[in-house]
Computed example of a mutant assay.
Amino acid sequence: MRFIWDLCLILQIYIICSSSAQPIISKLDESWWAYKDVVQGSFVPVPSFWGLVNSAWNLCAIGKRQSPIDIETTHMIFDPHLTPLRLNTGGRKMYGTMYNTGKHVSLRPDKTHLVNISGGPLGYSYRLEEVRLHFGSEDALGSEHLLNGQGFPGEVQLIHYNQDLYANYSEAAKSPHGIAVVSIFIKLSENSNAFLNRMLNRDTITRINYKHDAFLLMGLNIADLYPDTIRYITYEGSITIPPCYETSTWILINKPVYVTQMQMHSLRLLSQNEPYKIFLSMSDNTRPAQPLLQRCIRTNINFNKQGRDCPNNRALRPQYRGEPTTAVKRRAQFRWK
């Protein structure tokens, strides 16, 4: 019965969206979606429905390069041409505003203090637009990406747009080579990463308990967020929220950052609603893993093997060679554990 009821609601939504009611369409494009099915008095589409309720979001259902993915280490291919990622802060600290968006903890840097990345798999310079946190209600459920089927307590995503080709994030998000996302898994420890500690200490995190709450942070050094490694894996994918544009280059750092158990607990106490509404934890704000299909997962972790070509990169780099080794050998190379 619930399935039939949801289908009826979807049919009603299609009728509304196909009408001339432009304000309703705008509302759908902005925020009319959810990560999990909760009773809120009306239907709000969860990930399995994102691509069905709005034609502008159809890539969420039919796209061939969707994110996140399950990173199977046996499918990775060593690319000797992947250089280290370059971070440019201009030698200055930045300030930014931390928001409770109702779906994420989001840190958006001040536009006058530019942070750029380049190098690695990127052919352009990309400007930092947002730092976004994903986290779970349980320690094994919080990351969007998986490693050999395993989740992590959380995932930090540093979202950048191509400043060489596009004027802003909105333009870049729907355009080729538009977005670069640096992703770092979060693990639990007795001590926390210096940058995340600024965001998640009690005096700060309690300022954004409810949706639309915001708090200004000063003197941030984004380099503190990056683990001490030049190793990463990369693949071509999509934005992980509607409209799921397939314009993202993903760079997953081969070492985690750490937060304390208390800081993770504080994240789980954040509400996705305003204070006058029922409390609903923001946790489990993750999209399920999407099929890899014909894409390659490349890495600059050298497995000292020669082997097959990556079909996706033959035209770009005909000299590029690599071969997957056994899962056991590959796991030994990873610093995520």
Score class of each variant (00 low, 15 high):
Arg308Met: 12
Thr234Asp: 06
Ser248Met: 07
Glu274Ile: 12
Ile239Asp: 04
Thr229Met: 04
Thr249His: 02
Val257Asn: 04
Ile222Arg: 00
Val259Thr: 13
Asn304Met: 14
Gln272Pro: 02
Asn273His: 12
Asn304Trp: 14
Tyr276Asp: 14
Ile297Asn: 04
Val257Arg: 03
Ile239Ala: 00
Leu270Ile: 11
Thr234Val: 04
Val257Thr: 09
Leu267Ala: 04
Gly219Leu: 07
Leu220Glu: 06
Gln263Met: 12
Asn221Gly: 08
Arg231His: 08
Tyr232Phe: 10
Ile297His: 02
Ile222Val: 15
Leu220Gly: 06
Trp250Asp: 04
Ser266Phe: 13
Ala289Lys: 07
Thr234Glu: 04
His265Phe: 11
Ile241Phe: 11
Leu225Ile: 08
Tyr226Met: 15
Gln263Ile: 09
Leu270Met: 07
Arg268Thr: 07
Glu274Leu: 15
Leu216Asn: 13
Lys255Tyr: 01
Pro275Asn: 15
Asp213Ile: 11
Leu292Asn: 05
Glu246Ile: 02
Val257Met: 08
Thr229Leu: 00
Leu293Trp: 06
Asn273Glu: 13
Trp250Ala: 01
Gly307Pro: 12
Arg295Gly: 03
Pro311Gly: 15
Gln272Val: 01
Ile278Ser: 08
Glu246Leu: 01
Asn312Arg: 13
Gln272Gly: 10
Ala214Met: 10
Leu217Phe: 10
Tyr276Gln: 15
Ala223Lys: 14
Leu270Glu: 00
Gly307Val: 08
Ser248Cys: 12
Asn300Leu: 03
Pro227His: 00
Leu270Trp: 00
Asn312Cys: 09
Tyr232Thr: 01
Leu269Gln: 14
Ile222Gly: 02
Asn285Lys: 05
Ile297Leu: 06
Met282Pro: 00
Ile301Lys: 10
Glu236Arg: 11
Leu293His: 06
Leu217Arg: 07
Met264Leu: 15
Thr247Phe: 04
Thr260Pro: 09
Met218Phe: 12
Tyr232His: 04
Leu292Thr: 10
Thr234Tyr: 02
Gly219Met: 08
Tyr276Val: 11
Pro288His: 09
Thr234Trp: 01
Ser281Gly: 08
Asn254Tyr: 02
Pro256Asp: 04
Arg287Ala: 11
Gly219Thr: 12
Met264Asp: 05
Leu292Tyr: 03
Met262Thr: 11
Met262Gln: 10
Leu252Tyr: 00
Asn312Ile: 05
Ile251Cys: 03
Phe215Gly: 04
Leu280Cys: 08
Val259Glu: 07
Cys310Thr: 14
Pro291Leu: 05
Asn300Tyr: 06
Arg298Lys: 09
Lys255Thr: 05
Leu270Gly: 01
Glu236Tyr: 08
Ile253Gln: 01
Pro311Val: 14
Arg308Pro: 04
Ile301Thr: 09
Gln261Asp: 10
